[in-house]
Simulated assay, not measured.
Amino acid sequence: MTQPVIELREATKRFRGSTGIMTAVQNLTMTIRPGEFVAVVGPTGCGKSTTLSLVSGLEPASSGEVLVGGKPVQGIPAGIGYMFQQDAIMPWKNVLDNVAAGPRFRGVRKADARAVATTWVERVGLAGFESYYPHQLSGGMRKRVALAQTLVNEPKIILMDEPFSALDVQTRSLMQDELLRLWAGTGAAVIFVTHDLEEAIALADRVVVLTAVPATIKADFVIDLPRPRDVEEIRLTTAFLDIYREIWDCLREEVARARRGATLNAA
């Protein structure tokens, strides 16, 4: 078997808040191999985004270990692409220059950066919109730009924090299919955080369920659905519905726990 590209070993993250120390995630142990697509689900506020921050090096672990490429994470590792819930498109740059920004920051000559950016603009379906600015784009088009920004550097690891949550249902399905199409064959490992269990199952090879805060891994489900996938069609299959029921039976207990905790805190 190939060696893991991401490893969390009893990783814990604590934050200092107004009421003292809060443990966001504790004792997370998980491995992800090259080419694996892993979705992470759990109750609201349970630490899903914190997990991405540990892998990306944006936050250091309070205890335990986080390794990328077999090396402890100390700062932001090379070869990581991060797509946030709110896109990081620069409003003063047009589509082409937004996508070319990543290669330019890495020292690629302007002409070469624009050439590779042109290829990715075409691959995400925005040919003809190279000179448009973000305020001229729809929400779905902006997400295509953000996806091209993430993939243009050919990352070995792609971290995605609810990237499609703000889109309408139809556009969201289109972007899910686009993501699978563009990711296929890259060999990149993906961690995809989402509140949407259907989205997680439709996209992923594995779905990891986190508990309510302090979050730890409750279960890790293998999604044995064939690829390539059409996300709309696969949702209608019996196999999909069976997997959904199994994971929801596990997840809903944690959602209920989180709601009870929120009610007690409000009181």
Rank of each mutant, 00 (worst) to 15 (best):
A127H: 01
G185W: 08
Q170S: 08
I191E: 05
K13R: 15
I6L: 07
G20E: 13
R257A: 15
L179M: 13
E199P: 10
L264F: 10
L197M: 09
V213Q: 14
A189R: 03
A184Y: 02
D205A: 03
G107L: 07
S49D: 05
R104L: 15
V207T: 06
L241E: 11
F15A: 12
F37K: 05
E154V: 10
T29K: 01
F192P: 06
I32W: 03
E65S: 11
D161S: 01
V41C: 04
G70A: 03
A39M: 10
G187Q: 11
K13M: 12
A101V: 11
T194V: 04
M22H: 10
L174G: 15
V255M: 04
P91E: 12
D205M: 02
V193A: 02
K93L: 15
Q136N: 08
G17S: 08
E233V: 14
K143W: 00
A127Y: 01
S49W: 00
E233F: 07
I223G: 04
Y82D: 04
T118A: 15
F164N: 11
L147I: 15
N153Y: 00
M30E: 11
T23V: 13
A111G: 06
G57H: 04
M22I: 15
A127M: 04
H195K: 05
L126H: 00
V121I: 15
R109A: 15
Q176V: 03
F240R: 06
R106M: 14
A258H: 03
K13G: 07
D87R: 02
L179T: 08
Q85P: 06
E232M: 14
T29C: 10
P228A: 13
V207A: 04
T51F: 03
V41N: 07
R16T: 14
T263M: 14
F164W: 07
G107C: 08
I234K: 07
V40H: 05
H135E: 08
T186Y: 09
E65M: 04
A88P: 00
G64M: 07
S173K: 14
W92Q: 08
K93I: 01
G20N: 05
Q3C: 10
G139M: 08
Q149E: 10
T119M: 14
V68H: 02
N153C: 12
V68G: 00
